[in-house]
Design a protein around this nucleic acid. Structure first.
Lengths: 221, 221
DNA sequence: ATATAAAGTTAGATTAATCTAACAAAAATA
DNA sequence: TATTTTTGTTAGATTAATCTAACTTTATAT
């Protein structure tokens, strides 16, 4: 049995390793807001349970079993977010906090019903892929908007940061997933971008923002 | 702040006192499947927090504050059960276990959305009243079917036991809330009742069952 | 009314999850 | 390379929630 606390460690390990590859105790500690000493002892416990490969002073790694368990928790989180947006009328900026709690509900039927009612979605409201019933996840090949070139037209496919402040920022600018964005020019000095999209003929997006927007390049035709 | 564990004690205290009036440590202990010694120490803790009136060897009583807090938890439980049945397609026999978990979710918006989508319901799928936003509850004046007389026609308004076995028993017999039931006769020996309802011209219900069915007497006309 | 049973309490131990403080290893820098 | 900083570990304490075992109070039954 995996405790709620252990679930949180597994989930953050999973998230951190998809973001930054290698995960160390310090990073995990900061992310969970739990002291390093506590993280170390929890890693030993999770290693006992064969959910984590742990060696002193080495980077942390989930075992295959750990990845699956983490994937299943993230599946519950993302299905919940989708349900909250699609079926309950929440904005994408309000769902994270609730999903953080509902992801720990133990009930196969509950999440199966959500999945079914949503028509078996594969991405959540922020564009992140939803792991399948076996906990497996496939990340589509998105690029950061910040890495695109002037003149390109791209489609907004996901957002990296799901903080409600960032999402509200996007709301104000009428930016949502699926939006077609044209990159008009890039300021070399600060890498800010002048773009057009929807009804907006010209908006400037800072590099900080562009780093957090994932896009797909439009087939040229 | 009230912990999840404390919430469970408050809720069971509330439920037991509406069922049986006075609540003692032993009953609460059995209901929560927690040893009496643990219950005693938790009662002292809840008394510290002014949620329970506690005196050694005396029956347990919620304070006004404790009743409100308990009412708010039960509100979340019953709104959830209603949501699961009405909006997610669960049967009334499957919702208790899930609601036991979701009742602990901390999010005002989540339960407000449920309430709104359900049209501000006042009873849950088992006929129990849903406490209002202030944690206040009003029990309608139901009678037990077992206390009715032969010849009476009554309407099934609530079920006392929400165990999935009992509810499945009712499902098999096509009994659901709102059903009009005619009491044809009562067997004096074991107090079982011969009744008719819906498409069933004659069914026998044991006293055990009749004790768990709450009904409203139909206005005679 | 006294003995027995049931209910309730107290003391002390246990477990999970956390912390602080001291120490050790690894990485960065002078 | 030697020193300093950062990162990681260990040891020991703390808190919440639980338990067992011993004891006490209240209720029940002869």
């Amino acid at each position: 049995m995996i405790s709620l606390t252990e679930e949180n460690y597994l989930k953050e390990l999973f998230n951190l390793s998809s973001e930054s590859g290698e995960v160390n105790v310090n990073e995990l500690s900061k992310r969970l807001e739990i002291k390093m000493s506590t993280v170390t002892s929890m890693m030993k416990k999770l290693a006992e349970k064969e959910l984590v490969h742990y060696e002193s002073y080495k980077p942390l790694k989930l075992t295959e079993k750990g990845k699956i368990e983490a994937g299943l928790i993230i599946r519950k989180h993302r299905l919940t977010e989708m349900f909250l947006v699609e079926k309950m009328g929440f904005g994408w900026e309000d769902v994270h906090e609730i999903a953080e709690q509902i992801e720990h509900i133990q009930s196969v039927g509950f999440f199966e019903k959500m999945d079914e009612q949503l028509g078996y979605p594969t991405i959540d409201p922020h564009g992140s892929p939803i792991p399948d019933k076996n906990g497996k996840i496939v990340w589509p090949t998105y690029s950061k908007l910040s890495e695109c070139k002037a003149g390109e037209t791209v489609r907004l496919s996901a957002v990296i940061n799901t903080s409600s402040e960032f999402l509200k920022f996007l709301n104000v600018r009428e930016m949502k997933l699926g939006l077609k964005i044209k990159i008009k020019s890039i300021e070399i000095f600060d890498k800010s971008m002048e773009v057009s999209y929807g009804k907006k003929p010209s908006e400037t997006l800072s590099n900080i923002v562009c780093e957090r927007l994932l896009v797909e390049k439009e087939g040229r035709f």
